[in-house]
Design a protein around this nucleic acid. Structure first.
Lengths: 233, 233
DNA sequence: GCATCATAGTGTAATTATTACACTAAAAGC
DNA sequence: GCTTTTAGTGTAATAATTACACTATGATGC
């Protein structure tokens, strides 16, 4: 690769990081995975997992690397959120953050987070601690994005296991959107879309009628989308 | 400001630019403002107006600066679009682009674009020339964003003059969404929202019944929004 | 000044989607 | 086999969306 100055740009350059807002859900309230900072600035404060972007690394790859290195998470839904570039957002120097948000099946990663040397913890959205840098602002942006998107793109499923009951799905939507949903209307609508595959399997060892499991039918979604269908809850 | 290396980050850094996708509308098809590159690479190719981000400049300020310097445009709607970071998106070296999209009242800027030394021109979306770098991809992303947003946020008005007729507004939506809209239903819905202020003024010198002008009532929109109203067309 | 042309502006009925609401079914624990 | 708890379902009332055709008005040309 050629040198930079050859191409009329030898100004000082901002540093680049990515920060990841990681959402998880376990049936109750929506949660966020945070890690405790080990170094200054904001030593011992909770923060979004993040890190510097390498010179030959796309920001999305960087986000995936950080997800893996700092939270032990891989192969999950990830989407670019926003690029935060306030000049004073980092007290050290000019650092721009290209932020991402991830949706993970929390159960699958419960054991991994908090392992090793990195202190990681799930926090309910309503009980977030004080955060480092401008991470509060980043989180707020991510929540808004998630709320906005969840009604017109089937991304909620990313937060559930492969198999889920309709009650779990409804609880997820209620939790994200912070609204109450009528059970019958919810089922009518979501089943009417033809995106859920009913499975033979049912809940076990529950002290009430066992609920049927469903899975999200990606193939059907793809086909319907090509025919002009658009998801809307 | 302290030096960087003090803080464990002295890797080479990608360069940072912003690129601006500028939409305009003059009653027919949606248009894009492009400028011709004067230098290599892609010399004489059409490209999005863009430029390097200064070390003490937020990316949004950079975008505004570029809008003014390269297109003579200021005080318009602007929103961050996406950050493009493919390692090979620029043949010179690693350059990351934080892209923005702007909506301008084309008539207001018709005279300014194309002035001075910079060659600028409006292109219909369906007749775009070959673009430099990955700008085609950026444009595609911008169109998708505009299409997605225009139905649930009242941003379309940014493309029209302060005063506009309902026919103009309808033509705008038809143009952006590439659909036909029923005149009566469109009017019923948009007027029913209570966001349009009918003006006394009507069209002049038209060879048919003169249409009434309306303006977008920002105050009413703000108030309604606080009461939980949400724009949807 | 009257006819023509072009677009502005309006009402209603049929269809579809949304909402609100209450009971029966089944599994486990005692 | 009784109790507890949640799963699962139908229907009527209301609201929103769609489809569709005619009259009103201003300018122009004769």
């Amino acid at each position: 690769m050629k040198t930079l100055t050859k191409y009329h740009y030898d100004y000082p350059r901002p540093a680049l990081t990515t920060d990841c807002v990681i959402f998880g859900f376990d049936g109750g309230e929506l949660k966020l995975l945070l890690i405790e900072r080990e170094k200054k600035p904001f030593k011992n404060r909770w923060a979004l997992p993040g890190g510097f972007v390498f010179i030959e690394e796309a920001t999305e790859d960087c986000a995936k690397r950080i997800l893996l290195e700092k939270a032990g998470i891989k192969n999950v839904f990830i989407e670019q959120l926003y690029t935060f570039s306030d000049v004073k957002r980092d007290p050290r120097e000019r650092i721009i953050s290209v932020s991402y948000f991830a949706l993970v099946n929390k159960h699958q990663y419960e054991l991994i987070a908090g392992r090793d040397t990195i202190k990681a913890e799930w926090f309910e959205l309503s009980k977030l601690p004080k955060l480092a840098f401008d991470h509060r602002k980043i989180v707020k942006t991510a929540i808004q994005r998630l709320r906005g998107k969840v009604s017109y793109q089937p991304i909620g499923f990313e937060l559930l296991s492969e198999k889920f009951t309709l009650t779990q799905l409804q609880a997820l939507y209620e939790s994200i959107l912070e609204i109450d949903i009528d059970k019958r209307n919810f089922r009518k609508k979501i089943l009417g879309m033809g995106l859920l595959q009913p499975l033979e399997e049912k809940e076990k060892n529950v002290a009430h009628k066992a609920a049927r499991y469903y899975s999200f039918d990606k193939k059907a979604y793809k086909e319907l989308t090509q025919k002009g269908f658009h998801f809307e809850l």
